[in-house]
């Protein structure tokens, strides 16, 4: 099968060097070949099990609790303005 490695890079938000691309393409093909073993088992009528705990997640009490200090955020963020974290532009006109 043909894996479109550039597409996977985009999906995983990675930018690989040519060398990395070559090595990873080979690995990815090999590993997908291994996943194809799953074709050998009959699964008719079996429901997928997303999580072993099939219980409803409860909701916590809606009460005020000590959260992360604003100071920590200001200290660890790459850049802040007036206490707000600066992020990269989401709209640049480029096709994504």
């Amino acid at each position: 099968m043909e894996v479109d490695i550039k597409r996977l890079e985009r999906l995983a938000l990675l930018k690989l060097s040519d060398e990395e691309e070559k090595a990873l393409s080979k690995d990815v093909e090999k590993i997908i070949g291994f996943f194809k073993q799953l074709d050998g088992i009959v699964l008719e009528g079996v429901e997928p099990l997303f999580h072993v705990m099939e219980k409803e997640a409860g909701v916590r009490e809606d009460s005020v609790e000590k959260g992360i200090e604003k100071l920590w955020i200001e200290r660890s963020a790459a850049k802040t303005i007036d206490g707000y974290v600066v992020g990269p532009r989401t709209i640049t006109g480029e096709e994504s």
């Binding site: 890079e9 985009r10 938000l13 990675l14 930018k15 790459a78 850049k79 600066v86 992020g87 990269p88 532009r89 989401t90 640049t92 480029e94 994504s96």
Partner: peptide
């Protein structure tokens, strides 16, 4: 890194 002047995709990638 400083996120100014970088596109979203380039920044993360």
């Amino acid at each position: 890194k400083d996120p100014e002047n970088t596109s979203w995709i380039d920044y993360y990638s």
